[in-house]
Each structure stands twice: as structure tokens, then as C-alpha cells.
Design a protein around this nucleic acid. Sequence first.
DNA 1: CGGAGCTTTGAGACGGATCAAAACTCGTGG
DNA 2: CCACGAGTTTTGATCCGTCTCAAAGCTCCG
Lengths: 243, 243
Amino acid sequence: MLNLQSPLSRKLTAFVALSDADLATLARFDRRRKTFHSGHEMIHEGEVNASAYILSTGWACSYKILPDGDRQIVDFQIPGDFLGLRSILFRTADHTVEAITRIEASEVLEPDLLDAFANAPRLATAVLWAASRDEAMVVEHLVNLGRRSAEERMAHLLLELGARLHLVGLGDEAGFDCPLTQYHLADALGLSAVHVNRVLRRLREDGLVTFQKGRVIVDAPARLRDLAGFDTAYLDQTGPLLR
Amino acid sequence: MLNLQSPLSRKLTAFVALSDADLATLARFDRRRKTFHSGHEMIHEGEVNASAYILSTGWACSYKILPDGDRQIVDFQIPGDFLGLRSILFRTADHTVEAITRIEASEVLEPDLLDAFANAPRLATAVLWAASRDEAMVVEHLVNLGRRSAEERMAHLLLELGARLHLVGLGDEAGFDCPLTQYHLADALGLSAVHVNRVLRRLREDGLVTFQKGRVIVDAPARLRDLAGFDTAYLDQTGPLLR
DNA sequence: CGGAGCTTTGAGACGGATCAAAACTCGTGG
DNA sequence: CCACGAGTTTTGATCCGTCTCAAAGCTCCG
């Protein structure tokens, strides 16, 4: 029951059928397990030869800081997600990754990845697929910022997080635990923290979602999806890729 | 002088040293050359098993359409860029790609890519690098929409296009030819077309950039970069990766 | 029980949207 | 060679969503 143990294998096997050999190689990614405390910067923008990680417990976020000190969060990472995968190919990391909660993660070095590509082609495909999915999420976030109102953005983000968490066995249809502050939400959605607060209140008063005390409860899933224009196509790619 | 002939090889060799065998494999990507007229949708959101292309002449853009008809352009593609590379791994395309001008492009099928990955590892690395760079650009666009003012966004976009065009031998320090309408700019920057017009006027009146009659002229490069907070780090990765 | 970080609320300012309409550009056909 | 028309650019007036500044209330850890 390897697949049920690790959030990553649970996520990958949902989309690519992996052989036992693939799963064994995947399991080897889990050596070098480390713990980081909340707030720790695991990868720094500008850092050379940064490592990548696979997140197994806790939440992280990746962001960029502007000259004036403003921050734009690009994505949140939850168990099963890669941290800084892109920065392995780049000489210097182009973004920062920070632990939001206390985190457990396995460090992935370049040779691990190359080994996987050479010896476990199906796994390599799966990793590539995961990277493409990450990019698809960034694209959807771009659409969010460019063309949706504050409330639509918030609805979309919460629905995405819910769907992703559900996929790795955290949270269910009703809701999920969420350690994000309103500052995190603001920096992800391109809003001010003050406005985030008002938006959350309106969504709550309209009976759509409630986000309080670290828990998100989706009160009216259908109406919320409708408001956000939320389409899971970019996330789930229904059923395993065989090829 | 293969590298000077194709914009793609010119771009890739700037970052990864390619062997003659790599270059030969790369040249084989150039069979199946096709022409598309301006406005043609080469890849449709939702399309299954879409092909990818390498753009050799002309401009394209990739975008998503929202339920209410709004459009968010994710990126523009210029000669040497891949079109729809991500959609090869996905069962269905998650975005649309449309020709802005008349276009010449070479169709790349899945087997071509797999062949390259199996037989030309350095080229495979280069392709992966190109995909990572595409993602880095999307991330930078996200920052643009989330945390920059309308003028900063415009300045940033024009500087990015200039830098990318320069890299493939189109345009120089002074400026470049640009077939985009103000509607394109608006949909890329998350603004209204009317506001785009006013922003361009202000930038022109401030002596920063002039965009008129299909040509962009950078009047004050240093001041423009300063306004935009433009750092080429995410684009050029100075000097060839050897590994 | 104190205090730091987070959430909540109010008042006012401002960037960019929207609506409306005129002016320009350029390819096309008469 | 001119007139037309579709697409594009430009400008004005007004409106609205979100920001900023300010301050109070809450929560939870030490």
C-alpha cells in the first residue's frame, strides 16, 4: 500500500499508472527527510544551485518580492507537491519558497532526478506531468488576477485548495483545515489584507463559504463554483494516462 | 551555421551547448512546416490530443476565455518559441493558441519529442530548460498583474518583449516591430483597452517609450527599466549551461 | 497576564472601468 | 484613384472597486 502512504505517490498514481519499479524509485526520493519550522525560507530568490523538495507534511508558499517590498505569492504547496522543482534546471532560483507551517519534506538532488529519468521512464513522465500541472495552476492564477473580481478570486482560490487537498486525502466535500492568514490570501490574490477581510465577510454573509479559525467550510458548493467560474479541468485530467 | 538559421536553435544554443548530433535532431523538428493566416486558432482550449508547434515566423498568443467572454492572454509567442508544448502532456489543451500575424510553424508530434528525449539528452535538457523558462515568464506575468500599476505593467511587458526579440535576432536596443493592438495589450495586462491607450500616451509624453504604427521605440531604457522593476534574471540565465 | 500577530470596522482617496463618440488607418472593390 | 467600411486609436465624463490610513478588538502563545 505504498500509494496510500505518501501524498506524492497518491497524487501521481491518480494520473499515471506506475509499475512497482517506478514506485520503488519514487520511494527512494524519500530519503533525506528534513524538518523546517514555520517561517523558514527553504529556497531564496537568487540562490545558486538550490535543491528541490517534496513536501510531505504542512503548507508552504512560493513568492517573489518586488523592489518596493510588495510580495506576490505564486502558489501554495500542500503535501505531495514539489518545492522548487523549476529551480533545479535554472542556475539561480527565480523565487523564494517559505514554510507556512512546520514542515516535513524530503530533499531531492539533481542526481536523484536524472536517475529517475534514466531508469524509470513512466515515473519521469509522471514528474513531467506534475510540473506541467504546476504550470497550469500558475496560468489559472494569472487568469484569476487579470480578469476576476476580488470575490471571484477568493472563491476560486478556496475551491482550488479544496480540490487539491481532497486529492491527497486532506479535507472533504464539506471543507478543509487551512493555516493561511488573510495576509497570505491578500498576497496571493493581489489584494490588500483589509479588502480580503471584507471579501471573506461578504462571502460568509451570502452563505457561500466560511473561513474562520483555520477552517474553510464550503456552505454552497454549486453557487461558489458558479461565482468563481471554477472548472477543475486544469487540475484533475480524469483517469490515468496510459501511454 | 545552423544556429543562425533557426530562431529556436539560436535561442537554445545561447543557453545549452549542443552537439552536432543534437543540432541534427533539432533540425528534424523542422519537417512538417505549415502556414497559418492571421487570426487562425491553432490550438483550442478543450481540444484533445492537440499538437505542439515551433514558431519560425510571426507572432502568436496563448489565452483563456472566461464564461463572461473576458479574455486573459497568458503569453505572446515570437519566433523560436514553442506553441502548446504543455498540452502534449495533457490529454486536453487547457488554453487556446491563436496566430496574431501570418505564421510559419513546424508541427511537433509526440514521437518527435520522445525520440529527442531518448537520443539527444543534451537537447532534451535544452527543451526542458525552454519549458522552465516559459513557466518563469508566466510567473513574472503573474507578479505583473498582482502587484504592479498599469504603467509599470506596460513598461515591463514592452521590455520583456524587447529582450526576447533581441535574443532571437529581431529588434535591437533601440526598439522593435510589434504587431500587437491595444486590445492585445489590454488582455495581456488585465486592463481595459481605453486605459491601455492612456497609459501609452503617458509613457510617450514622459519620454520613456513610444509605441506607434507597429513599432516600439525605447526612448529612455534605464528609466523604463527602473519604472518597471525589470530584471532580466528570469529570461537570460547568462552563459551556456554545461552539465 | 502581557503582548505580538491577526482580524475587523470605518472614512476618504484614487486608479482604472465603463459608456459614448469622434478620428484615424488601411485594405478592398468600384 | 477614390470611397467605403471594418478595425483601431484617441479623447471626454462619470462611476465603482479596491486601496490607504487609522484604530479597535480578538486570540493565543509564552
